[in-house]
């Protein structure tokens, strides 16, 4: 099996700040690949780079063999139909019902009749367990339900790649369990490739086939769940165990406290 997404020596800068410096990794087809890392490392940025919403300053990103970076606009839009993204907030359209949200990509990109669209929507909502909520507005949904509705929308067009942006953040244990189960099920049943970006270690170790850990602008560890657990890297271990201080310092880089309190005022 080949790789669906390949990132090669990618460098990305936001203003003066370097976010990624020489990141390379591959996402194999049909697997769940997890990208973990502390907050603020720019994990969402990574997904936007893969989706072509941002362009890297150096390096290349390839989707199914063709370079996203060098695509023109219409090629990019064609490619995006094969991928979908589950945003952290769900990003449901707040002026439409759940049903219309899920039907939206179908209405935009297909010429299917309304009857068929209704059937597809019902099936997709059934898959995430929300068929009963199809006439509710997004504002009436709980956080977990909104995310599941958004998941139904992102699988509406049967994409090759689903990108999950922090799917577990701020979820209660039950909805977290539901989402973990859904991600695994969808991946196996629809034969899609999944990228899960998260900082929730325990959940992701249970479902991911391969894991990359991002920190300090680069990849600091990779491997299967077991390899990661047994890694001897201090950075990886700090991340897995959730220690407050370690290679990733507790303090944001700053001058000496004594200096700033008692030293010369600048």
């Amino acid at each position: 099996m080949g790789n669906l997404v390949e990132i090669e020596n990618m460098m990305f800068r936001r203003g003066e700040r370097v976010i990624y410096d020489g990141v390379s990794f591959v996402v194999p087809k049909g697997k769940i690949t997890a990208v973990m890392g502390p907050s603020g490392i720019g994990k969402t940025t990574l997904l936007k780079l893969i989706g072509g919403q941002l362009a890297p300053d150096e390096g290349d990103i390839r989707f199914d063999g063709s370079s996203i970076v060098s695509m023109n606009r219409s090629e990019l839009y064609q490619t995006r139909r094969r991928m979908s993204m589950l945003f952290q907030s769900g990003a449901l359209f707040t002026d439409m019902t759940v049903h219309d949200n899920v039907a939206f990509p179908l209405k935009e990109h297909t010429k299917l009749s309304d009857d068929i669209i209704d059937t597809i929507v019902a099936l997709k909502l059934q898959a995430v367990g929300l068929r009963g909520a199809s006439n509710m507005m997004p504002s009436e949904l709980s956080g977990g339900m909104a995310r599941r509705a958004a998941l139904a929308r992102s699988i509406a067009l049967d994409p090759d790649l689903i990108m999950y942006d922090e799917p577990f953040a701020g979820q209660d244990p039950i909805s977290m369990g539901v989402l973990v189960k859904l991600i695994r099920q969808l991946n196996d049943a629809l034969d899609v490739t999944s990228i899960v970006v998260t900082h929730d270690v325990t959940e992701v170790l249970t479902i991911a086939d391969y894991i990359y850990i991002l920190a300090d602008k680069r990849i600091i560890g990779e491997g299967t769940a077991d390899e990661i657990r047994n890694s001897d890297s201090a950075l990886v271990q700090q991340f897995l165990k959730g220690e407050a201080d370690g290679p990733v310092p507790f303090h944001y880089p700053a001058g000496d406290l004594a200096d700033s309190l008692f030293g010369e005022k600048s």
């Binding site: 907030s89 935009e108 990109h109």
Partner: peptide, 14 residues
């Protein structure tokens, strides 16, 4: 702010 614009773009809708 709620990523609806981003999400449209990812759905290949301009």
């Amino acid at each position: 702010a709620t990523e609806q614009l981003s999400s449209l773009e990812m759905m290949a809708v301009d």
